[in-house]
Design a protein around this nucleic acid. Structure first.
Length: 531
RNA sequence: CGGGAUGUAGCGUAGCCCGGUUAUCGCGCCUGGUUUGGGACCAGGAGGUCGCAAGUUCGAAUCUUGCCAUCCCGACCA
């Protein structure tokens, strides 16, 4: 019943809430009616009204992605892809700076390889797309239609990779013989497929883009160090570039990657207080080396299995970015990743004014581009300034510059920042420097805003009652004692729908009692409902 | 995948309960003109096999079944 009524609101919400009463709207004067509809067609569902719908509206109306014909699949549109490319470029740089190289491994994994590491195979088995045939033919019973040719059945099924450990470790076997071949530090940018039950744009799609690093080391110590190094890179990327504060931590055994000895993660908090795992780095021990028989000879001529790590972040980061900063007017993108950092909108009456503005803008564009600023001059005459203002706010462009005849006369421009919606007048002389400074300020400001929100929404709970009350009463993470057993974690998950997001690294040790069982505990862990 | 809801032009929708000429309205789009400091206006125009597929019927957007997609609640998960 609850679901039913909620749904009807969400489906018709933009109409009902914005117009209060459809009949009334229809009876308005023609002019008013037009205005109402204009607002309607462009407006975004508010966060308070329906958080999920708000998210979808941002992604779709912000021009990041579209639904596609395939179940759970999406099209990443140019604006969204540009965002991804910016993320990629930065991460790729960070990986290469720390000695990693890119390579590419196949999409298809023979089933016999896939099942070699048992835990990993089991963990992903339920969500694998499987290629069983390699040919279609005309359907004799159904003119113009195709059918799978039963004659073209594969001897061995091919698994569409949900992750590439299997195919990569099978390859590494041939690449590694000596300690001199180590460490092997490889990353690949790829797509993977996970047949998810329920998908959501960017957050969980059947196919997604990601990078996956797979490294091999001579010692456990090195492999752990690599795992932690990458976690640090992920955290730095999230905080410095995405302006999204994250908590570094360890997953519990229940939440660990299938086949890993230890899973490190960064957890971000969304504006609804839910947790989003933004990246993971796994210490794989010798599990894959043993499964794929990857041995090396060390300096003492002893034969041993290599130690491994794997790590990845995906286009899910775009979802995190959208939810972390955006507001009811649209996207708010951090300057360091925004496809367009500055948009310039001319305001003019007649060609003469336009030419004067063009002249000023040309110089400004030069200065900004030289300084590496991604700037767009939107002098498209199809839309009026007001339309453009709203459009670029929707798209989350960090800084907007409006320049008209009035400004030229005063040698100023109007500068508006997306994050605070604040407008200010700036002198044209030295404008580029001030804009660059402003972009930096915005980057810091949205990070600080998100951090403040995050910190205000981590609450301690010291009893089960408190825990349950907080979960339903206040959005965010809950810091609480846990007895350390998977059974208790499972029980809490069943009872409260909250999971342990992580055991924070460098966690403060303190005596306490498990909120569920009362058993002794030495530290608090972070609980939350998660995406 | 289980429970619930929805699907009509690019978008938002009326009509559906109670089957019956040419499917409603707005935005957007195209052409021409006037405009341009917060989603412009006038005139003219194009755009739909009513999500898809079967079925019932003389006749289906409307009734029935199946499928697909989306949303909400679960389970699963980056």
């Amino acid at each position: 019943m609850v679901a039913k009524s909620k749904n009807s609101i969400s489906k018709k919400s933009s109409y009902k809430i914005k117009n209060k009463n459809p009949l009334q709207a229809k009876q308005q004067s023609k002019k008013n009616k037009l205005k109402t509809y204009i607002l309607m067609s462009k407006e975004i569902t508010s966060r308070a009204q329906d958080y999920s719908q708000w998210y979808n509206d941002l992604v779709l109306k912000g021009g990041l992605a579209d639904y596609s014909a395939g179940r759970g699949c999406m099209v990443i549109k140019p604006y969204g892809y540009a965002l991804w490319e910016n993320m990629q470029a930065q991460l790729d740089k960070m990986f290469k700076e720390t000695g990693h190289e890119n390579a590419y491994f196949p999409l298809f994994v023979p089933k016999s390889l896939f099942e070699a590491e048992e835990k990993n195979a089991e963990g992903f088995a339920k969500e694998c797309a499987v290629v069983t045939h390699y040919r279609l033919k005309s359907d004799p019973d159904n003119k113009g239609k195709l059918m799978v040719d039963p004659e073209a059945k594969l001897e061995e099924e091919l698994i569409v990779r949900p992750t590439s450990e299997a195919i990569i470790w099978n390859t590494y076997k041939g690449w590694i013989q000596s300690y001199r071949d180590l460490p092997l530090l490889i990353n690949q940018w790829a797509n993977v497929v996970r047949w998810e039950m329920r998908t959501r744009l960017f957050l969980r799609t059947a196919e997604f883009l990601w990078q996956e690093g797979h490294t091999a080391h001579a010692t456990k110590k090195e492999a752990v160090a690599e795992t932690e190094l990458i976690l640090g890179i992920y955290a730095e990327f999230a905080e410095t570039f995405m302006a999204t504060p994250v908590i570094k931590g360890l997953k519990t055994a229940n939440e660990r990657f299938a086949g890993a000895e230890e899973t490190y993660c960064i957890e971000a908090m969304m504006q609804d207080g839910k947790a989003l795992q933004a990246g993971t780095s796994h210490f794989l021990g010798q599990n894959f080396a043993k499964a794929f028989d990857v041995k090396f000879t060390d300096k003492e001529n002893k034969l041993d299995y290599v130690w491994a790590s794997s790590w990845g972040v995906s286009t899910r980061l775009i979802g995190a970015l959208v939810m972390a900063h955006s507001d009811d007017e649209g996207l708010v993108l951090p300057p360091k990743l925004a496809p367009i950092q500055v948009v310039i909108v001319p305001i003019f009456k007649g060609e003469e004014q336009k030419q004067l503005i063009d002249k000023k803008v040309t110089v400004l564009l030069q200065h900004l581009k030289l300084a590496g600023v991604k700037v767009k001059y939107d002098d498209n005459d199809n839309n009026r300034p007001g339309w453009k203002f709203a459009e670029y706010e929707m798209k989350g462009v960090p800084v907007r510059i409006a320049i008209g005849a009035r400004d030229l006369a005063n040698n100023v421009v109007e500068v508006a920042r997306r994050d605070t919606k604040e407008k200010m007048s700036m002198c044209i002389d030295g404008l580029a420097e001030n804009i660059i400074k402003l972009l930096e300020d915005i980057q810091v400001a949205i990070y600080e805003k998100a951090r403040l929100f995050r910190d205000e929404h981590i609450t301690k709970a010291d009893s089960w009652d408190e825990f349950v009350q907080l979960l339903d009463g206040k959005a965010g993470f809950i810091s609480a004692h846990w007895d350390g057993t998977p059974q208790t974690e499972e029980k809490i998950k069943d009872l409260a729908k909250a999971t342990i997001r992580c055991i924070p690294l460098n966690n403060k040790q303190e005596e306490g009692n498990c909120i569920l069982t009362g058993a002794a505990s030495t530290q608090r862990v972070l609980f939350a409902r998660a995406y």
